[in-house]
């Protein structure tokens, strides 16, 4: 697999997800099912590595890149990881420019409140997993 294709496939997965592990189904479809470039075992190991290291969980795609093409593949994975982040800049510029509009301001407020509400199941899920692992370990 060429580095350009590797980058494009990894980027497709990151661009179509809105959370760390959101691109996993797409990655499995492209790399395990369609192209057999990595195995399910490598994919789960990548997720484990991503969850075990500090920082964003989405970093697991670097491991997939490495599994496919070694170090250059890891670089392609990192580039695919960070590329979508820069879309936040035009979004921020637009949002700040129009934030004086009361309807937009309340729309942003509602999104912030919704985002905070959605954090609750994430936080509870993390804590529940951690407690389950602690008891399993003991």
């Amino acid at each position: 697999m060429s580095l350009a294709l590797l980058y494009a496939l990894l980027l497709k997965a990151t661009l179509t997800s809105f959370s760390g592990l959101g691109g996993l189904p797409q990655l499995r479809e492209d790399f395990v099912v369609t192209r057999q470039a990595v195995t399910d075992d490598q994919l789960s190991r990548a997720v484990l590595f991503g969850r075990s290291t500090p920082g964003p969980q989405g970093v697991y795609i670097v491991s997939i890149g490495y599994s496919v093409r070694g170090l250059p593949g890891a670089v392609a994975g990192w580039l695919a990881l960070v590329t979508p982040a820069f879309l936040a800049v035009p979004l921020l510029v637009l949002l700040r420019r129009w934030l004086y509009l009361s309807r937009l301001r309340t729309a942003v407020d509602a999104v912030i409140i919704a985002g905070a509400t959605l954090l609750v199941p994430s936080g509870v899920g993390l804590a529940r997993d951690a407690i389950a692992q602690l008891f399993k370990g003991g």
Partner: peptide
Amino acid sequence: GVLVAVSRFTPGTNVLAY
């Protein structure tokens, strides 16, 4: 709050968008 809203609407990893 605005940064969080932007990061939630940006595709990919939220913390990197933030």
